[in-house]
Design a protein around this nucleic acid. Structure first.
Lengths: 197, 197, 197, 197
DNA sequence: GATGAATGAGCATTCATTCAT
DNA sequence: AATGAATGAATGCTCATTCAT
């Protein structure tokens, strides 16, 4: 009941604090004590909720992936047109990352650097999102609205392009609006699969 | 001198060992002792050649960038045709990374994860290579062989696409030949800037 | 009352669980959580019944001593003959330890290792049991059935001999019956005080 | 050369300090920092010489066993007579422990309490010393100077008796001379194997 | 009486860096 | 130039104990 709620709140607060500290310092330089402080709890309290620093990082990572996933699903729910779905996927990714700079840093920058023992999970998550793009591309190919490209490679290029643009923005000292890059990026990517924007 | 030679050899051996250990364990988990061992020297010897772990990492990074740079220059030296130069740039990058998997890991995966204090240098290096692509793209636009695209964004997409493909390959357990991806990638990227391959 | 009963049961269950965990892990490595789990209660519940880990250990120790004491009293109740009482003491100790391996471990092995702050209590308990043996020996000396030995030292040798034999058995991976050692031990100890077995 | 010597000295100083701290606080309550301080070195220095607290404890234990062993060998070197060897064994043990109270505490009291993961080594060491006694007893039996007893059990009784007497002395607040117990103990133990002292 | 979330002092261990030899 | 012993600050994690519910 009440305690349920409080436990979940605490859980959530720790994840929030961890996202903050991890993206500020990187995984290795992030200190568990700092995360606990940022979550207004004690180190012991943190370890009650998460078995260790690694697990905490993975939990934050999964939570970030979940956020991204749900945003994408929400945005795509209203689109049926293959080309529109492709454009929506692109816009939704930029919008979501643009609204969650820390999530972007965690997902795109900190996770590779967290060390080899996180690579597998990172690969899995990337494969998941690349897979979404692959599906949309195949969809569009089947509908004949784009050229019959190698969807796997195309999706990697799309993801890579987004990755690079978002990364630069996430690391910039004084970042402008990420969505400002959308038109040029959309033109490039759509043209890359044989459609004039 | 003889000692000159020996010093340079030692210097080189340490860099080689560092590349090895850094890419195997990531920057943070790499232990200076291990690097010294791998270089068949002592910790003290290592510290004679490099002021510290950070500087050593940057030295390896610069050495890797130098390798990449020289390979690109070599490959481009023989090309005059704007479109050919673009294709060559692409092929040379895949070839070089394909022949130096550890360099690829270091450059694309380990450096972001090395921590925020390396981000600036990483940004600089990436800007350099993106800049090369920008130059080639502007060259091609000026020659009228590709569409008048936003070369900055286009270069980021090119770099991002390459980054993603090489990263996946560099992290794969059982990687096939990286150059196998070249045709599809070239088709995508050239089409993205308005040229049919 | 019903609750009375339940409380006592819980109390008992905790002591039983504590004996188990203490003898499995040693005092220091035994974790209060594990004891609570083994007793099918919560940590808070355990702390309702016992003020702390130290007190719990002492309670288990006292309970074990009590067991030993009562078994000895029971066995000796039927014996009047000094020599028979000595033999009975010996047999009763081996029988009791043999039937309660965990008690043996706790009493003879874990308690010394529980740390200096338990030494006093340990000494007291050992003195008590050595005292029982002293009494029987003096009894026998007075009756003239054994030689006029230094009963204090003799009791220590008796206790030490039993201690060693029981310890080895308690720590053995695959222990045989402890009583198998009785004849040889009895012969030795009786002869040590001047009586042919 | 010089550094060899200094390294060995440091090594030795750490072992000495560890013996001190372990016997003062018990294994678990002994703090590595304290040992380092007591050895006038740093924690890091300690860890350069020993891989961990466990290993350090075992090293101290082995060193103590070595001391005991060499004292016994020395004392027995001059004795040929089976009975004299038995008596010498007994006296040497009491003398050595009497002169090294900390060694006695470590060997007889702290080691059992150091936790189950040390039990095996402890058993091995005890078996070694019991084995020495067994050999002497068998020797004496063969020579016909003591009764044909079960030498294994007899040795355990001897070791146990010594153990008990030394333990009491090692734990006493104000211990008298351990050798004062020798005559009574010798009488008891010799009589236990069928010889009048 | 019981629960289990929370606390926080305590601790073993790591490791980049220094420096006497 | 090179060695490796020594340093000590830093940090992840444990766990006995408390207490609001």
């Amino acid at each position: 009941m009440r305690s349920q709620t409080r436990t979940i709140e605490r859980h959530e607060r720790i994840l929030e604090a961890a996202l903050d500290v991890f993206t500020r310092s990187g995984f290795q330089d992030a200190v568990v004590d700092d995360i606990a402080d940022a979550a207004s709890t004690s180190k012991g309290g943190l370890y009650f909720h998460f078995p260790g620093k690694d697990a905490l990082f993975l939990a934050v990572l999964d939570r970030t992936a979940m956020l991204l996933r749900s945003r994408l699903e929400l945005a795509l729910a209203m689109e049926a047109e293959p080309l529109a779905r492709l454009e929506t996927t692109l816009r939704a990714l930029l919008q979501t990352f643009g609204a969650h700079r820390k999530a972007a840093r965690l997902f795109l920058i900190d996770t590779p650097g967290a060390g080899p023992r996180f690579h597998r999970r990172m690969m899995t998550l990337r494969a998941e999102f690349t897979g979404l793009i692959v599906a949309e591309l195949e969809n569009a190919v089947a509908a004949g609205v784009i050229a019959p490209v190698d969807c796997r490679v195309a999706a990697q290029v799309w993801f890579g392009g987004i990755h690079e643009i978002v990364s630069q923005w996430a690391l910039a000292e004084d970042p402008e609006d990420l969505l400002a890059r959308l038109p040029a990026l959309r033109a490039l990517l759509l043209r890359s699969v044989g459609t004039a924007a």
